[in-house]
Design a protein around this nucleic acid. Sequence first.
DNA 1: AAAAAAGGCAACCGCCTATTC
DNA 2: TGAATAGGCGGTTGCCTTTTT
Length: 256
Amino acid sequence: MSWGVMAGNLGWGVIEEGWRKGPWTAEEDSLLIEYVKLHGEGRWNSVSRLSGLKRNGKSSRLRWVNYLRPDLKRGQITPHEENIILELHAKWGNRWSTIARSLPGRTDNEVKNYWRTHFKKRANSKSSPDANEKAKARMLKRQQFQQKQQQQQQQRMNRLDMKKFMSLLDESENRVPYLPQAKQDMVTLYPNNTAGEEQDFLYPLFNGYMSLPEAPNHEENILWDGLWNLDDIHGNWSLACAANKAGLHTLATPFC
DNA sequence: AAAAAAGGCAACCGCCTATTC
DNA sequence: TGAATAGGCGGTTGCCTTTTT
């Protein structure tokens, strides 16, 4: 929808006290991205002065955090993430930012919206069994679709061989402090350095690496799920920790 | 096929805390 | 030490899309 159309709506997209409000345009996004490239995150109140953007600091920060950040994970919440949300919400309540820190690439806003739309109504619908059943059916359908997508993704990932993985570790170890240890552990575990039976083990590790914002193929939007089962991988905890630290540097959950 | 209802999500608001001066 | 400012968080709103009737 164009800005002009938006501006025609009731109070949405108006200019108030010199600040634009409402949906962001592609041009505004570009200006904000350029600003962050040049000045980094923070100093949000300087955005308008330094970039020409007619948005206040809060709006700019929110747009960056919730939408423009390069490390954001796109796509639907996976069943595994859903379980984490449920578990952590039961533990912490509506502390969305805390919950979101345990879901790499997800924002507090996203988690909050997801919980509100998927769980709050379910909790409230006890008096309406029909609605509850319908909601369950929809959820099941969506989960089946997501699982199918993940299987396809995993099949693609399994085509990666050990050599490629090691070369990617080589490329990135200058930037990611935990990867040298991961690489060393890989060599110890798999001295022959070949693909094959290790592939199941590589999958979660590689996922962790590929999900880093600076990873070369980040745009492939590879799923994180494997990382959450790292304790299953051959009992090598130090390697699991190394990979987790590399990928989950902002993660609050204490893996190690 | 059309209208109504529900779902989904981006964005705003107000409050609180941390930081700076 | 207190005021001003910036940043962060949770709650809420408003609009578009999808589903249901």
